[in-house]
Design a protein around this nucleic acid. Sequence first.
DNA 1: TTGTACGCGTTATCAT
DNA 2: ATGATAACGCGTACAA
Lengths: 343, 343
Amino acid sequence: MTTPGRGPRLVSVKDVAATAGVSLGTVSNVLNRPHRVTTQTRERVQRAMTDLGFVRNESARRLRTGVSHTMAFVMLDASNPFFTDVASGIELSVEHEGLSLMLCNSRNIAARELAHLTQLEQQRVQGILITPLDPESPTLEELAGRGTPVVIVDRHHADGRFCSVAVDDVLGGRLAIEHLIDRGHHSVAFVGGSRAVGQVAARWQGAQEAWASASLTRQRLTQLTTVDLTPADGREAGQRLAGITAHRRPTAVFCANDMIALGVLQHAVNSGIPVPEELAIVGYDDIDFAAAAAVPLSSVRRPRHILGRAAADLVLDEAANPEHRHRQLLYVPELIARASTVG
Amino acid sequence: MTTPGRGPRLVSVKDVAATAGVSLGTVSNVLNRPHRVTTQTRERVQRAMTDLGFVRNESARRLRTGVSHTMAFVMLDASNPFFTDVASGIELSVEHEGLSLMLCNSRNIAARELAHLTQLEQQRVQGILITPLDPESPTLEELAGRGTPVVIVDRHHADGRFCSVAVDDVLGGRLAIEHLIDRGHHSVAFVGGSRAVGQVAARWQGAQEAWASASLTRQRLTQLTTVDLTPADGREAGQRLAGITAHRRPTAVFCANDMIALGVLQHAVNSGIPVPEELAIVGYDDIDFAAAAAVPLSSVRRPRHILGRAAADLVLDEAANPEHRHRQLLYVPELIARASTVG
DNA sequence: TTGTACGCGTTATCAT
DNA sequence: ATGATAACGCGTACAA
């Protein structure tokens, strides 16, 4: 007869019913169909609930009704402001529907991503938004196949078997390079992370395309690989750049994201390389910190909130609408030119 | 007889038992006490589970056993890297116990905080870590009173009725100001946000104490209030500073956090005020972006990961140990001097 | 308004 | 070691 769990024994609908002197069904009606109950008894029941400290048991509800009241977003990297901004966009839509959003952080580690997905599926969340390490992973298809709506954020699935929301990163890469070519640069380095290949491949591709179509005579687009996409990686890349003698050094870099770009910027300033005169820098995402850098960073802006809202709307539709059809949305990035390229 | 919810009807233990040709109890044993089952039957059952795509129903488990497998952290502001770093510290400890962590974001809005807490309590999470808008709010005490372990992060409850983990921000404020006094500054402004009074009051207090005990003759410690603690607020504060004629302008600012400081730094550089020669800047938190600023930011470092781990350990103890006693942990900050104060 | 079957995994009991 | 069975937790929904 011991109640499992610890702490004060929790109050159930039964207790509320007893205290209010009504039946169990009436309590349920107060909770779910208040209009069916006389104002008088309703108030009596509500009184009993607050007096006893009744807390609805979401597990029991879910077990019975089969529907949970939460959505989830599995972030690739919570320390990247890009993803937290996407998350607030998601929240807006999700909470507008009276659901709550739970955030998970895979930190770019496959085992952690899997653990989160498993947990979320076991909780029977209404839907999962995810920026996956690998959009083609069978895990995602299996998950969706068992009935959990899955929407991919900031990636696409090759065969369109999911809803997805992303930005045209090929165009983004092209915008960045075209801007640098416009500013007269002939030797440019792309700085990206090897552990984040999927995230940056399109940007690199766009960069190459733009470079090729400019058909410069003595062109040179090189690649500088870092491990990850953090400010520390950027500093390290900056160090390698600073080590190159000035006349062979690229006159500009296009960084796979703003965190890298901020690191490069820092090291450049520290080692006395004037930005943008000797080194122009373009970042990617246009996070708030980009504009707040001491040399404000030119960056390819992606519509983070809109991305989040759109993704949330898709997963909500998939969860609620039986006639749902998968859609892949592609948003357009925009180059924001600031002092790091425009002297 | 219709199954509630949509999508393919989910597989239950019964189906697994039938397919594997064993009894229901055996399936349960495979899940919860695998050693009691022959390797052979265990494999047969596991085979059936994967074949059918069986997914444990966490709600049913929780309902029966009374214990959930999640902890939650309600963040004050997910766009502040300080909190995401604390969150990763928490994750480390929580996942070490085989539990999963769900993140919520109150965005400094009381209604959102309440909504999250309600939701989490209804889900019967094992414990809640929270950086509350108001540590003295009765909501928290009621929540704890009904049995959910609550640990306060980055604040303390006045009467010690909760476990809490924080940093000595009075000391932090003192360190910042002492550093500036050491560097010869006589006129300093504190830049903080009015919507974040609770978070910054101690820093301001420490700043005043240090200033008072220096007993300078022509001292001047002023206060510059912003709305929030974002880079944009910092830029706006920087604008107000730049508007002051040079000989009346403070020679240094101590910012309530690094995001503000980065904004101030940006505006200073933009308006041609040399940092640190004409304006020294000290931030607070030492987030990664502080070191990555083009003029690396001096900042009061707080042990973010350690804070998170400690908080998680406390809530885990409170959830598992019947002899748990509340503790208030206070960590010591450290001043990191960089180029924004040390020419 | 009331009574009650139901959802599903867990655990215990008794039997094989 | 495994089988068969039932009670249990708690809120929901429907028939009475």
